[in-house]
Design a protein around this nucleic acid. Structure first.
Length: 390
DNA sequence: TCTGGGGTCCTAGGACCC
DNA sequence: TCTGGGGTCCTAGGACCC
């Protein structure tokens, strides 16, 4: 029986590291990635910035107060994706089973690879060296008998870390990390655990699965039961595939003009539909999201009987959904459009394909998309151009 | 402090069907 | 007529992660 060995690989301060790769002069700066608007937040903080107490998701205004001379650089996602792909390609040389879970993280199933790469720790060192030499990027590697342990191990020793937790030390490791840093347990659940009178992972282990489920809900109870024992709680999907496609924007200043809101919905409808076409998927559900200045947030969705075939169709539905949550004159802080219940395929699952008037729109939009991708000029659907000029 | 954007998964209630 | 139970789908909201 082969002993299971999982690696979790995490790129250290990834966005900041790529920016520094491209701009060596950033090296001595207090670098953060994020927009300049007063409503921006920090998307990623360099380690230097972290020494000032700056972290991701922090409002930029607050970060500036902590360090007035910080350097804020807007994110370049395409560039980060490019470097991410390079690193993932290297990882695939070390394991036939690489499971990417975000732009800067992946699991490797390294079970039974010792003949090729040596013992886990040696393989980890070789992996770090290879990534560093070929990309200039620094990774942290966590090694464990389960994905959960590997993930928490990479977090335990970073940046530039290498941490292996042997199966016999799993429980001790979990207890050392503690409840506050248990992956998958956020603020709300932590409070709920505290409210139950539980202070440590050891105490949590004293609860039966049934009792945990009764107290914290089916899924969370089961998750806690397994997590606290170092077992995989079954939350890392075997194959991650897109189940929704969405875009949203927070306005610099609140918008109450219907024409502008509709224009934004139109352009967002085109964006999400273009991404769906690009990924060769179709969606069944259209959703919008609205946030008011007091931060109350609504989502409304609809699942039409007919298949969703065109951006214009998304737009028409989105307009209708907006009307359910918005009255003329109300200022809006954020608006978004999303496609849900996404499934593989470029054709509807069923339905009267040829009778659908949206089929023609879809074909036209597809042509426009192909043109826009092949040339430097941005080609948009005629209706979109008209509205933007008007 | 005044709160981005892109996702996944879970829960609970209601509609509808048998 | 005052009323079961199971299953599935849809909707809205929320926790959590990077």
């Amino acid at each position: 029986m082969i002993e299971p060995v999982f690696f979790h690989v995490d790129l250290d301060a990834f966005y900041a590291a790529v920016e520094t790769l491209d701009h060596p002069e950033y090296k001595d700066e207090v670098l953060v990635i994020g927009g300049k608007s007063h409503r921006s937040v920090v998307a990623a903080a360099s380690y230097k910035a972290r020494t000032y107490g700056i972290h991701s998701a922090m409002p930029m205004g607050q970060a500036l107060r902590l360090c007035p001379h910080l350097l804020a650089v807007p994110p370049r996602m395409e560039r980060y994706s490019e470097e991410s792909r390079r690193v993932m390609a290297i990882l695939s040389r070390f394991s036939p089973s690489v499971q990417q879970i975000s732009i800067d993280e992946a699991f490797l199933d390294m079970s039974g690879t010792s003949r090729l790469f040596g013992l886990p720790r040696e393989a980890g060192m070789l992996l770090k060296k290879t990534v560093k030499e070929e990309t200039g990027l620094v990774i942290s590697v966590g090694i464990g008998a389960t994905r959960l342990i590997a993930k928490m191990a990479s977090d335990y020793d970073k940046p530039d870390g290498l941490c292996r937790v042997s199966p016999s030390k799993q429980i001790a490791f979990i207890d050392a990390v503690g409840l506050k840093k248990l992956w998958g347990v956020g603020k709300v659940t932590q409070q709920a655990i505290a409210d139950a009178g539980i202070k440590t992972t050891g105490e949590l282990r004293g609860w039966s699965k049934e009792r945990l489920q009764h107290r914290f809900g089916n899924a969370m109870g089961s998750f806690l039961y397994h997590a606290v024992r170092g077992e995989d709680p079954g939350i890392f999907p075997e194959e991650s595939r897109s189940r929704s496609i969405s875009t949203e924007t927070t306005f610099n200043t609140d918008v109450s003009d219907e024409e502008i809101l509709h224009q934004v919905l139109l352009s967002m409808s085109h964006e999400v539909m273009a991404r769906a076409l690009d990924e060769k998927v179709m969606a069944r559900t259209i959703a919008i999201k609205v946030r008011y200045p007091d931060f109350t947030t609504y989502t409304v969705q609809t699942t039409p009987d007919a298949p969703i075939l065109s951006a214009n169709q998304v737009y028409e539905q989105a307009k209708g959904l907006l009307a359910q949550k918005w009255r003329a004159g109300m200022p809006i802080r954020l608006i978004g459009v999303g496609l849900h219940q996404v499934y593989d395929g470029e054709r509807p699952l069923q339905g009267e394909l040829f009778e659908d008037p949206h089929e023609k729109e879809r074909t036209l939009e597809q042509v426009a998309l192909t043109l826009s991708k092949s040339g430097k000029h941005l080609v948009k659907a005629a209706s979109l151009q008209e509205k933007q000029q008007g």
